[in-house]
Amino acid sequence: MLQIKDLHANIDGTEILKGLSLHIKPGEIHAIMGPNGSGKSTLASVLAGNEDYEITGGSVAFGDKDLLELSTEDRAREGLFLAFQYPVEIPGVSNINFLRTAVNEIREYKGEEPMSAGDFLKLVKERSALVELDGKLANRSVNEGFSGGEKKRNEVFQMAMLEPKLAILDETDSGLDIDALKIVAQGVNAMRSPERSFVVITHYQRLLDYIVPDFVHVLYKGKIVKSGSKELALELEARGYDWIKEEVSA
């Protein structure tokens, strides 16, 4: 599904990703953890096609496509989804209108007919219920005036609408209380399937109680420095990152 090999990326001349490799197979859930500033969001942005970053080495294959050759929109149309750590507010663009445009542009890319208004609204109703997102929010401007938790749920709602092959969730749990966290996890779990993979970026083990990962990786200084099973997350929770930093510098 996704094969990242020795990826290097700069921003404003500073190297942030320094030879990162990761292999994700269909249906798998990978958690990525790591101290602040280690490059987790950078990885997510680079995969989504943010042009502020310069790729200086390595490769990324997405299915049979060279991901780095695709525009941001084509990556999304090929089935890559990023739930942003900080979703942007877009005053004046209605959530619904925006999603409908997105759904139909993706369908057009795949050579499919646009979705009928009726089917679309039915899907909105069904998928917003997954994350218990108030129907009223769907009609508001994208993220405008949404609370932190609503923004995160809106990201998961969009994910559920667009049905990607690979979803990257960047700290979708940050700032959520336990009830909201359960709702978000429930939305993600409802979308799990043998063909759909997830990358869950988080600082906290508690999310991983609800979204159980197949693999846990530690990203530090722009590289995956340790990988393990879900137990690794428990160990990180108990011991912090110092022991890993020591291992790396040793």
Partner: peptide, 8 residues
């Protein structure tokens, strides 16, 4: 970027 990342 946000809109493009959704396939628009």
């Amino acid at each position: 970027f946000y809109l493009r990342a959704r396939g628009i």
